[in-house]
Each structure stands twice: as C-alpha cells, then as structure tokens.
Design a protein around this nucleic acid. Structure first.
Length: 270
DNA sequence: ATAATAACCTGAGGGC
DNA sequence: TGCCCTCAGGTTATTA
C-alpha cells in the first residue's frame, strides 16, 4: 500500500511519540511477516528511540544499542493508540511506550517487515544497494539520463526499480509519467535528455505534493491518527483506465508492465 | 548484467 | 449465499 509519501507521513506522525518516551514492551502477536521478526527486537525494551527517519520505504527507529528497520509492505499501516486499546485482526506488533501510548503495526498481507540491526543501518543488506532518494539532489536529470542509456526495459518499471531511484511505486510512477507526457512503455534508453529532466522534475513534484496532502488513501492506508491521506483526489490517471483523459478527453489506456497495471493517455503521452 | 516471471499473503469485488 | 477468478500501494528470488 504505501509508497514513499505514505511512509514519510507515517514516520512524521510517529516520531513525536517515539522520541519523547521510552519503550516499555514489544508485543509480537504474529512474527510471520516477510521475514520472521527476530527475537532480538526485544532489545528495544528499555530504550529511548533517539531518531525516526526514512530511507526509501524503510522506517528506521534508532536507539543507542541498535536500530529497528520497519517496512510496511503492500498493506501495512501504523497507528499510535492508548496502550489499553484492544488488538484486532492483523495487529501483529505493538511497541508499547512508557507514556501510555503504543505504536501498532497492522498488516493484512504480511509483506511488511520488522528487523533489528546493531550495525549502521545503511550497511544492512536490504539498504546497502538502494538508489538515490528521489527528493534529494542526488536524483537529477543527468543521473537518470546517463543511467538509463542502453536499457531496453520500459521506463515505468525502470523508475520503479529501487536500484535506479527509491520510493517510486505504481501510483506515483503512473502519475509522474502522465505529468511528464511520457509513454510508460517507452524503452528507458530511448527517453531523451529533455524528457529525463521533465520526468525527474515531475517525480519530485508529485511526491512532494502527496506528502503535503498526507499521502494517498486507496483502501486501508491511514495516517497515524487514523485519518486518510487526501492525495487520491488529485490522481490524474492511476485507477482511471477507460475514463477520459483529464487533459484531452481521450480514453485512458490500461496495460500491464512488469506485472503492474499501468494507465496512460495514448494521446498526451509519447 | 539485464529482463521477465514467480513467489510471498489476505481480502475485496465481479460474474455466474 | 457461495464459488471461482482477478486484482491490489512491494520486494526478493529464480529463471532465461
């Protein structure tokens, strides 16, 4: 479910609670996520979480003795609740705080992950080989242009590849390509320098706008306080196959690219 | 190395 | 109402 904006919004939502208290308990009701939650996650207990930050779609909860690595997968969401709130279906983990609140992870499909590392988090195998952050200056037109030369894979799955740039999932890849006027089926290596510049700019714009709106709520994503994200109202093409293009009224096409549905305007996107 | 496919898992919605 | 099928915001592992 969550792409970069939803993860960022979740991180910003939980940080004030986590960094101002102490971990009293970690309750694991179901350890069977993408990988089993390791027993060492209990090393969080008694710790003060000094920093909550994000790399790609991973949230990092840093303590003096290690870092918890949290991923929401396809259907994960976080809530901050009173510590006595009864757990419901798919509420797999609680991080109980001394403040009387808890951080609860709900993840129906269990594609998410909760891991523990005592090393520098960016050296963890899952994080070590990631591409640049899309909102940073490391992600620029010149980089995308150079990196994509000779690549025959379609541009949409290409920008969704974490080795190229992180955090761009199916919603925002579709939106950015529409806004940039680029056909998602185009071979990455055939996208011109000017188009790379446009695409980089549109990726940054759409992600930043989505963060400002609290992310995109399609079905079950919610912010830490339970409110939905409102960016769904600004989606131009995602989920709109068969409907008229908001620019030119041509019927939006839908194809599968890298096993992900991809909606685009055959007139506006070349 | 690159690209395409399968796999992990549950739930919602459509068609019959 | 129930069954079967397809689809869903992600990522890794396996295969050509």
């Amino acid at each position: 479910m969550p792409e970069l904006p939803e993860v960022e919004v979740s991180g910003q939502g939980i940080a004030p609670y986590l960094t101002t208290s102490r971990v009293q308990a970690v309750v694991v009701r179901n350890a069977r996520l993408r990988w089993p939650i390791p027993a060492e996650i209990q090393q969080l207990v008694g710790q003060h979480i000094t920093r909550v930050w994000r790399r790609a779609k991973y949230l990092l909860l840093e303590c003096a003795n290690g870092t918890a690595i949290l991923h929401l997968g396809m259907s994960g969401s976080l809530r901050v609740l009173p510590a006595d709130t009864p757990a419901g279906k798919h509420d797999h983990v609680d991080i109980v705080l001394a403040s009387g609140k808890l951080l609860r992870l709900n993840d129906p499909r269990r594609f998410g992950a909760l891991l523990w590392t005592t090393a520098a988090p960016l050296t963890h195998p899952l994080l070590a080989k990631l591409g640049p952050e899309p909102l940073s200056d490391d992600f620029q037109a010149a980089y995308l242009f150079a990196h994509s030369r000779g690549r025959r894979c379609a541009i949409k799955p290409y920008v969704m590849d974490n080795h190229v740039v992180v955090g761009v999932g199916n919603i925002y890849a579709s939106e950015a390509l529409f806004n940039a006027g680029i056909d998602p089926r185009r071979a990455a290596g055939s996208v011109t320098q000017a188009q790379c510049a446009r695409l980089v700019a549109e990726i940054k714009t759409v992600l930043a706008a989505a963060i400002r709106q609290g992310g995109t709520t399609l079905r079950d994503f919610s912010r830490v306080d339970g409110k939905p994200g409102y960016f769904v109202q600004q989606l131009q093409v995602y989920g709109r196959g068969g409907q008229p293009c908001p620019q030119c009224q041509t019927t939006l096409s839908e194809v599968r690219l890298g096993q992900r549905s991809s909606v685009f305007c055959p007139h506006c996107q070349q």
